[in-house]
């Protein structure tokens, strides 16, 4: 009888239920975004290895030109460049190197990011990033960045050699001594 007639119990049930629902709703609210599935391995394996390594062309001795400034309409591309860093990116590279010496690797990474925003296509910056990745122990990314530097600097004899030697060191760290040797035997490396 008490049970049947107790509006309070009913009210309690109702509100308790509501409360419970509210709690549940709060806990079980679906995450706003799906977590992405774990990433597949980078597609490096699928890419033809030799395709990313510039083949050995004869390195023509050509007059060295200044790194071209961005132009509004292209001229015929110069066959050889001498890349250098602008004062701003040079300052950032110095800063990043200082950070590496002090063991501030994330800071160095951020500094080089900043430099890349200023001169994204400068192979010298990519060489710096490759070195940093090597220091961090991310040898795979070090290799990729060195290859990026090689491609960007393919017309600068000295940049190419620097990037080539760095890449050879990285390949040795990856226990790919034969690849490193092949690279070092390229005519343009000497």
């Amino acid at each position: 009888m008490v049970r049947k007639n107790s509006p309070l119990i009913n009210a309690l049930r109702r509100s308790g239920g509501t409360a419970l629902l509210l709690i549940l709703a709060a806990c079980a609210a679906p995450p706003p975004y799906q977590m992405p599935a774990p990433k597949a391995e980078p597609v490096v394996a699928a890419a033809p290895k030799e395709a990313t390594l510039p083949p050995p062309p004869p390195a023509p001795a050509q007059p060295v030109q200044e790194a071209p400034k961005p132009v509004q309409k292209e001229a015929a591309e110069p066959p050889s460049r001498a890349f250098k860093l602008g004062p701003a990116t040079q300052a950032l590279v110095n800063q990043a190197r200082g950070q590496v010496t002090k063991g501030q690797l994330p800071g160095a990474s951020a500094t080089l990011d900043r430099a890349l925003r200023i001169e994204p296509q400068n192979p010298l910056l990519w060489i710096e990033v490759a070195r940093l990745r090597l220091t961090e122990g991310d040898t795979k990314q070090a290799e990729n960045c060195a290859r990026r530097a090689l491609l960007l600097g393919s017309t600068d004899v000295s940049v190419r050699q620097t990037a080539g030697h760095l890449l050879a060191d990285i390949l040795r760290a990856l226990h790919r001594d034969d690849d490193a040797k092949d690279l070092e035997d390229q005519p343009w490396m000497n």
Binding site: P42, V43, V44, A47, P48, A51, T52, P106, G107, S109, A110, D113, L116, V129, D138, Q141, N144, C145, R147, R148, L151
Partner: peptide, 27 residues
């Protein structure tokens, strides 16, 4: 996202610039 810092200014383990060879540069 370039970086995430905690309340004390310390960087969280972060995601960095990543490049991967994907296709023949010549092609």
């Amino acid at each position: 996202v370039q970086a995430v810092l905690d309340e004390d200014g310390k960087a969280l383990k972060s995601f960095k610039l990543e490049v991967t060879p994907a296709a023949s540069p010549a092609a």
